[in-house]
Design a protein around this nucleic acid. Structure first.
Length: 156
DNA sequence: GCCAACGTTGGC
DNA sequence: GCCAACGTTGGC
């Protein structure tokens, strides 16, 4: 079992959207490293923090669970989509998404400043200077700590 | 394979 | 809106 942090701009897709939908395909990842995490390393049952980027404030807002293995991201074939990729074919897709399911929305945002202020999270990938990856691996201890900070109901 | 130019992310 | 810190592209 592995642990992750996944970013989304709430204007694009928020924790409330996931709560409403119950589950969703995590589409739109167009970075090879992030893709490889989803395609090769993420497994059904893994846990992931939901992070709002470009938000007020930016930070961790909830928890989700990987509910479906990586499959081709349908938007790479959709000419009308911002995520269209002319080099991708049905036979040889380039971009993949996993399916994630809603677990919990936290009572409040654990902001980036909160994360930075916690020495136990000093090694978290998201806190690295210049870190921009939208899907990053985390650790059980880090997730546990964030859940604690959030006053989460879910117990690890 | 190098690297300059350009594009993107995302905090502030 | 600014800009640091990347990632990608393409000429050579």
């Amino acid at each position: 079992m592995r642990y992750w942090l996944m970013k989304s701009e709430p204007g694009n897709y928020s924790i409330d959207d996931l709560k409403r939908d119950g589950k969703t395909d995590w589409t739109g990842v167009r970075n090879y490293q992030a893709r490889n995490f989803m395609h090769k390393e993420m497994k059904v049952g893994d846990l992931a923090l939901f992070y709002h980027s470009n938000a007020e404030p930016s930070g961790v807002v909830g928890l989700m669970k990987v509910s479906g293995e990586a499959r081709p991201d349908r938007f790479q074939f959709d000419k009308k989509s911002d995520y269209y990729d002319e080099k991708a074919t049905r036979e040889e897709p380039i971009w993949f998404c996993t399916e994630v399911a809603f677990v919990e929305k936290f009572a409040g945002v654990v902001s980036l400043a909160d994360l930075r202020a916690n020495p136990k999270l000093a090694k978290m990938e998201i806190l690295r200077k210049g870190s921009r990856l939208s899907v990053t691996p985390s650790t059980k201890d880090e997730i546990k700590e964030v859940l604690k900070m959030a006053g989460a109901i879910f117990k690890l």
